[in-house]
Simulated assay, not measured.
Amino acid sequence: MSETTPHENPLVPNKKLRHIYTAMVHARLLDEHIAKLQRKAKANQRLAYSFGEEACRVATAIELKHGDLASNTQISATMDLLFGAPLTPLLRNITAVISGAQTRERISTNATIVSRQLPWIDGAANRLSMAMGAALTLKTQQQNNIVIAYAYQAELTRRAWKHVLTLAAQLNLPIIFVLLPQADGKGEATNICKDARTAGLPGIPVDANDAVALYRVAQESMGRSRGGDGPVLIECISCRAIGQRKNKRSDPILHMKDFLTARKVCTEDWAKHAGEVFLRRLAAAKH
């Protein structure tokens, strides 16, 4: 497929757009694989899913560099996959965790993959404190690296969020907060982006299903934080009202597919079969 089309965007080349889409498809397929395993095995230890969050996670993590760190909301395999964990041992570890043969604190046993993720601990306040501590260490050591910290807005009160954001701004930390969409719509109604700007850092709302917009905002935010200009908050806003039926607009993968095909970045056939090789690898790893 030609890399040059009438719709080529130098800021986000077509090759990168296809890479983002493929990574989103792979993340969805891996989650579906895990869900199926857990239904069959009546898992002793359950792994979390990232259904519907593929754009938020892939677009913000796909350009993280060696030495960057990630703080996750849950113990899942998505970040291991995005960081390049070899699939066969990753699937073996997933099966071991679900069966109870391996503890779920870490899924990947690849030392490089493990070193890029902060330990998961219960409680958003504790996880964010750890993430900010890691960011302060990177800053103190004058490393050109950042921390990306995922969280749900409802995990903290508005007062607690103000405290976290104010402290991050005061310390000028190289950290990007990514607020994931709350699937159930519950939680305290707040304007977290406004609170971020009041605290002294950019607060940027982005459509949670728009991987292209998220990618561009993430790249600008990473450049800012790597350049010593401090933290950024990206709030992933769900555009689907509570109770609204799932449709192309509310599914990030279908949304991305429509974007790519409308601009002739890929064909319908290419998009339809983008996950076939990955599916075959999933099937082969079972044997």
Rank of each mutant, 00 (worst) to 15 (best):
R263H: 11
E276N: 13
H273C: 09
H255N: 14
G275S: 06
R280P: 01
P252A: 09
R216P: 00
N247F: 09
R280Y: 06
I204F: 04
S221I: 06
S221T: 02
K264W: 05
R216I: 00
G275Q: 12
K272R: 15
G227P: 02
G275T: 02
A208G: 10
R216N: 10
R280V: 00
R245N: 10
M256A: 14
D258H: 13
G230E: 00
W270I: 08
R240T: 04
A218C: 09
D258P: 00
K264H: 14
E235I: 04
L260F: 06
T261Y: 08
V217M: 02
D251L: 12
K272N: 10
V212F: 15
R240I: 06
R245D: 03
A285N: 08
E235W: 00
A211T: 08
N247Y: 08
R245Y: 07
K272Q: 12
H255G: 02
A271N: 11
R224A: 07
D210E: 05
A208H: 06
A213P: 00
R224F: 10
H273N: 12
K248S: 14
L260P: 07
A283L: 04
L233P: 03
R226C: 07
N209D: 06
M256Y: 15
A211I: 05
G227Q: 08
C236K: 12
Y215L: 01
E235D: 02
D229L: 11
C239W: 10
V232A: 12
S238N: 08
P231L: 11
D229I: 00
R245L: 10
A262R: 14
L254G: 13
R280A: 12
I237V: 10
S238K: 10
R249L: 12
G275D: 01
A241L: 13
I242H: 15
K272S: 09
E235C: 04
V206E: 05
L214A: 05
R224G: 12
D251A: 12
Q219K: 13
D229T: 02
S221G: 02
A218V: 03
